Lab assay of single mutants.
Amino acid sequence: MATGGRRGAAAAPLLVAVAALLLGAAGHLYPGEVCPGMDIRNNLTRLHELENCSVIEGHLQILLMFKTRPEDFRDLSFPKLIMITDYLLLFRVYGLESLKDLFPNLTVIRGSRLFFNYALVIFEMVHLKELGLYNLMNITRGSVRIEKNNELCYLATIDWSRILDSVEDNYIVLNKDDNEECGDICPGTAKGKTNCPATVINGQFVERCWTHSHCQKVCPTICKSHGCTAEGLCCHSECLGNCSQPDDPTKCVACRNFYLDGRCVETCPPPYYHFQDWRCVNFSFCQDLHHKCKNSRRQGCHQYVIHNNKCIPECPSGYTMNSSNLLCTPCLGPCPKVCHLLEGEKTIDSVTSAQELRGCTVINGSLIINIRGGNNLAAELEANLGLIEEISGYLKIRRSYALVSLSFFRKLRLIRGETLEIGNYSFYALDNQNLRQLWDWSKHNLTITQGKLFFHYNPKLCLSEIHKMEEVSGTKGRQERNDIALKTNGDQASCENELLKFSYIRTSFDKI
């Protein structure tokens, strides 16, 4: 039985969820670079991206490699990797027998973001014989899940209580170790020597080791999670996991709180800001991140802002960003909400898709409305799209047979046209069989910064309504002859009103 693990408890099935942008060198404390989270699957090609990484700022997932063999891993080693800020997950990587050479110096898994409450997941690794993470000293947050690894031993010899604050939620089941077939031998045991430290858990006094050649490092209890030197002297209180010299914040392997210019500090002093819960960055760093993602459509890219001495992905609820200094300031009234469309555009074809934009005031991208039916549609669209004030790209209304009016965009005031449909149009209306009105132009103002209007096959939309939009939106004169079809717009509506004058002759039985 794995020490510190839980057996036999019912657990939810383990679901495996399925960018080499360097964020800056980590400095003297770390020998390499800070790398983003990685999802490495199918083959070993991307694994080489770990070569210079000291910190993975995010998670590391290595999974679904069915053609790899043990010899493929023999020359692979990433000794610079010290810390993973989120979680480490391995799933069905064939041929991998140990992690001792792959990650010989991995010391800390912070667990800032977890995989279903777990910071370390080893699942269905069919050839893994031992973990071998002999320098792993601290899992700051989260638990361990090690399950269905039929060859995995050296679990009962690990004292997880020396690595985690609590072992109650560890789930370590259905491994070879369960069948008591392992016969784990710690260093020196074969020669009758006791080389590794022994600890007591559940009444068992057991030597602690990761492999037959690597003991588990056990520091004096007084050192807590700070770690200790090879001689057993406690590291500085700002260290986490390990250090090369005692009581020196510049000799830590990793930091308990924050890293700044080669030393570990309790908090980031001005003019620095907390970033990702582990390091200090200056304003320029946060500003660069903001600008890199301002026009990016890459998933996970955030326009970072500053709030409460932190550089964070977005302002919290009730705050909006001051564009001059990136500071989050309290909103006066309802907060603006910028919604970034991942692929640059979004099609609204149902109430469900409209709900995804609920509360958005600025759309960074283009909207395509293609709704053919739905219950209580006008009210639903207004509830979900009615706060949109600005669209950076274009607005396209296409084959939306259920629409009679666009009044559900009740606050839309600006279409920038930074991206144009077919390279020309910022407003595009095609084949809307029941569209009769755009907006009530006596109450609604709309500016279209650039781009043209396109109207074709809107049989109940009168040309007068379209011409009014040209005047109000500032697009009059931009359109070419064929942009607004004269014969297919309003051709099934009563669009022309003329005053009919009647004269009559009164007659009676005795007068003409």
Rank of each mutant, 00 (worst) to 15 (best):
L128Y: 01
A230L: 03
P316H: 03
A198F: 10
G227D: 05
G203A: 10
S77I: 09
L240N: 13
Y118A: 10
R162N: 15
G333V: 03
R298K: 04
V265R: 07
Q216T: 12
P31H: 01
A198W: 10
M83N: 00
C286M: 00
A198Y: 07
C252P: 00
P104H: 00
D261W: 03
G142D: 01
R141N: 15
K310T: 06
C301S: 06
D248R: 02
H28L: 10
K129L: 04
S284W: 11
C209G: 04
Q287T: 12
Q61E: 08
H59R: 08
E130G: 05
A198M: 08
Y273F: 15
N282M: 07
C219H: 08
Y319H: 09
C53V: 02
S77V: 07
D248N: 05
G132E: 01
P31R: 02
L81Q: 00
G183R: 07
H28S: 04
N308H: 10
D159V: 06
L64D: 15
V281P: 00
E57A: 07
D277G: 09
L81F: 01
R263G: 13
N105V: 04
P31G: 15
G192H: 14
V144Q: 01
E207L: 11
Q299C: 07
S77W: 08
N195Y: 07
C182D: 11
L63Y: 09
E71Q: 04
D75H: 05
D247N: 06
F115G: 00
C53Q: 00
D86S: 03
D247S: 02
E71V: 15
I312S: 08
Q204W: 03
H212N: 13
G37N: 14
P316W: 02
K251W: 02
C293L: 04
I122Y: 00
L164I: 09
Q61I: 08
Y171W: 11
F258A: 08
S323N: 02
S213H: 08
C35N: 00
E231S: 08
L128V: 03
C182V: 02
T85F: 02
N322A: 12
T85S: 06
L327P: 00
F103G: 00
Y273T: 07
K67H: 01
K67E: 15
F283K: 11
L120V: 08
L88H: 00
S296A: 12
W210K: 08
L29E: 13
P269W: 11
K80G: 10
C328E: 01
N202C: 06
R113I: 13
T45M: 08
K193R: 15
H212L: 15
N150D: 06
F283M: 08
R141F: 09
E57N: 10
I84T: 00
Y94D: 07
N179S: 07
R141M: 07
P336S: 06
I158C: 03
L99M: 11
S98W: 01
V121R: 02
V281K: 01
L260C: 01
F115Y: 10
S284N: 13
L50V: 06
D165E: 14
H290E: 02
L76Q: 09
C239N: 00
C239H: 00
D165C: 14
V108H: 11
I312L: 12
G203M: 10
V173W: 01
I139W: 00
E57Y: 08
I82G: 04
P187T: 11
W210M: 13
S143W: 10
L128P: 01
K176V: 05
S143V: 07
L106S: 00
L260M: 03
S143D: 10
Y272R: 02
N242I: 06
S296W: 01
V265K: 04
G142H: 01
C239A: 00
I82S: 06
R141Y: 06
K217L: 11
Q61A: 03
Q299M: 06
F205N: 15
V144Y: 02
E124H: 13
K310Q: 08
Q216N: 07
H59W: 04
C239Q: 01
N322Q: 13
D247T: 03
Q276S: 13
F285R: 02
G241N: 04
C331V: 14
I222M: 04
L326V: 05
P334K: 15
G183H: 07
A198G: 05
R162K: 13
I312F: 01
N242L: 11
Y259I: 11
I139F: 03
K129R: 11
I40G: 00
E207W: 14
F258G: 02
S143Y: 02
T157L: 10
S284E: 15
L60I: 04
C301I: 00
M137S: 09
E33M: 14
H59V: 12
P104V: 02
E124R: 07
T229H: 03
R92Q: 07
D165W: 10
P336T: 05
R145I: 05
G58V: 00
I185H: 05
K129H: 12
S213Y: 07
N202L: 06
C243R: 00
S112E: 14
Q303M: 13
S323H: 15
E97W: 09
R145E: 02
H274L: 09
W160P: 01
P31L: 11
M137P: 01
N52S: 08
N42T: 12
L89F: 08
A119E: 00
G318E: 06
S143K: 13
S324H: 15
L90P: 00
V265I: 04
Q276R: 08
L64S: 00
V173G: 02
I306W: 04
C328A: 03
E181P: 03
D247V: 08
L44H: 08
D184Y: 07
I109R: 00
E57Q: 11
D184Q: 03
C255D: 00
E130M: 14
Y30V: 05
V305R: 07
P220V: 04
S317D: 07
L29C: 15
